[in-house]
Amino acid sequence: MDYLKAFIVGGGICVIGQLLMDLTSYRVTPAHILVGFVTGGVALSALGLYQPLVDFAGAGATVPLPGFGHLLAQGAVRGVRENGLLGAFAGGVEAAATGIAAAIIFGYLVAAVFTPRGE
């Protein structure tokens, strides 16, 4: 059951991204989708709307980029509660550190090992 929920919610979030790209101006590029979805995830999380989705759909909500924003926002909130104002700086980055570091490290290593194929 949790697989089905992950599939439908995760797929649904991607469909929103697809509609935003196809139905709006050409100015909405993939880069804008990435930035918009992370920021949107932060906002939804701050309003308390994203945690219920994570509870319901699991990876269907954490794997799409709003989940990344959710992680950042929840980290910042937790950081403030534990360490005061300093936590607003460190909390978000701490919570999302694994994903960010993994992307940079694997990105660097792949770039060092592989050559681009082009078309």
């Binding site: 790209m21 050409y26 993939p30 681009p116 194929r117 082009g118 078309e119």
Partner: peptide, 20 residues
């Protein structure tokens, strides 16, 4: 050249973008 022009004007060739 496809690959030289694409990276200068648009995206790196391995970027996962859908061309309109």
């Amino acid at each position: 050249h496809y690959d030289t022009a694409e990276r200068q004007y648009r995206y790196p060739t391995e970027m996962g973008v859908q061309r309109p």
